[in-house]
């Protein structure tokens, strides 16, 4: 299955910038279904982990208030072009997704 994570990672002057777009509905658990009037159960990403060459460089904890199809970016030092970055997430239902990308 193709991953629902899109990653752009590039290194410029020793600074690596990672941008990622994740496909996820990020349901808050407070929204009501238009037709049935029932509250739609919460379904959102709770943790996002980013590894660079096997070492965790960023770990995010998210609540339901992160937008649908979340986007995030962050920067770190000590990477070089050709290195691998791995991004993975877990949601509150235990679903996961992982993607690996090569830095430009």
């Amino acid at each position: 299955m193709a991953s629902g994570i899109k990653v752009r990672a590039k290194v410029k002057d020793d600074v690596a910038e990672v941008k990622a777009l994740i496909k996820h509905e990020m349901e808050t658990g407070t929204r009501k279904d238009d037709k049935t009037g029932e509250v739609v159960p919460a379904h959102h990403i709770t943790e996002v982990t980013c590894e660079h060459n096997g070492k965790v460089v960023m770990k995010a904890n998210w609540g339901p208030a992160v937008s649908k199809n979340p986007y995030f970016s962050f920067k770190f030092r000590g990477a070089s072009s050709g290195d691998k970055v791995k991004i993975s997430w877990v949601d509150n239902k235990g679903e996961t997704d992982t993607v690996e990308a090569v830095m430009k």
Binding site: V15, M26, T28, K55, V56, V57, M58, K59, A60, N61, P64, A65, V66, S67, P70, Y71, F72, S73, F74, K75, F76, R77, G78
Partner: peptide
């Protein structure tokens, strides 16, 4: 966002 060693404090996201 928990940052590891070598991280630069510069994060972006979109919120509700």
């Amino acid at each position: 966002f928990e940052l590891g060693a070598g991280a630069i404090a510069d994060v972006s996201t979109r919120i509700k």
